[in-house]
Amino acid sequence: MIKIKDLHKSWKDFSLKNINLEVKNKEYLVILGPTGAGKTLLLEMIVGFHSPDSGEIWINGENVTDSPPEKRKVGFVYQDYMLFPHMTVKENVEFGLKMHGIPPAERKKATNDVLELTGLIPLRDRFPNTLSGGEQQKTALARALIIKPEVLLLDEPLSALDVNTQKKLQSELKRLHEELEITTVHVTHNQVEAFILADRLAVMKDGAIVQTGSPEQVFHKPRDDYVARFVGFENLFDGEVIENQKNVAKIDIGGVVIEAVTEKVGKCVVGVRPDDIIVSERLFKSSVRNTLKGAIMDFVDMDAFVSLIVSVDNSSFAALITKRSFLEMRLKKGSEVYLSFKASAVHVI
């Protein structure tokens, strides 16, 4: 368990402000935030590469604020792997055991076990510069795991990898966490990665933690429009509630009026997730409260999905549909479509 109390740190032209965070035993916590939010600095303080200006860090009931990194039993994995270039995969992995003075026979067995666990046996005698990014990151992971750390810290571990490798390693991380049950803090700016891996999420902004909670909580009930924008509401509008009857509100978002379930009155920010929008060629009768007519201005092809940009009066909406529907509906720029979404899918902040 990690407990961070009132942590402050100024470093270069950057500062962490009043960080209070608890990571439960065996939990997988993901810290989500844009570049420059202070995520890496926070991780580097937990492992002890930097010491805080004030505040305390506790790991498993022990105050480690002033302990050097080698006494903390914290595994650390960098985005760019930081493998020792003059050592083979096996030597890299074995390094931690050597430093802990483990005798050779025991070392050999443990190294083999970890290499097996991470599927690195065939690569054991290769040097890091001959490995792919994914293989290097697995090696870095194995190297951190071998010391049986009480806490595992992952600093953007998937960001330098291509999409396919990212997906593979994502499930690898999930499997390893389920198998080994190590308390893990994973830092990323990738919302999907955060959503998939996290037991719990913490969102950081400008050196402070602005929201923590389960992925569902954070993604569906973002605390403010910063979090909302960051966790991926592409459709965010400034609006004004023009009528609110029994918590069903009509909100003007600049010419277009949409219905939402909210208690709010007056000015507000409205969010609709692109994947909550149904795209159709014809108007259809349903219980859906919001149906808007628009024209496709642009689209972005993303693997299995296509993201449409649809203009409705003066506003534009992003909507996510599968590639298959996109092809079946023969959509192109200028096509007229209807966008439908439930009143309950509209997030009013």
């Binding site: 492992v47 080698e70 003059h86 390094f95 931690g96 951190a144």
Partner: peptide, 27 residues
């Protein structure tokens, strides 16, 4: 030599001296 290599070595149990001797110096 990236100082983060030493950071990693220290997280793996190497003292400052060992990290220098085993990582930075040979590199």
């Amino acid at each position: 030599i990236d100082p983060r290599l030493e950071n990693v070595a220290r997280s793996l149990g190497a003292s400052q001296w060992k990290a220098f001797l085993k990582i930075t110096f040979p590199l």
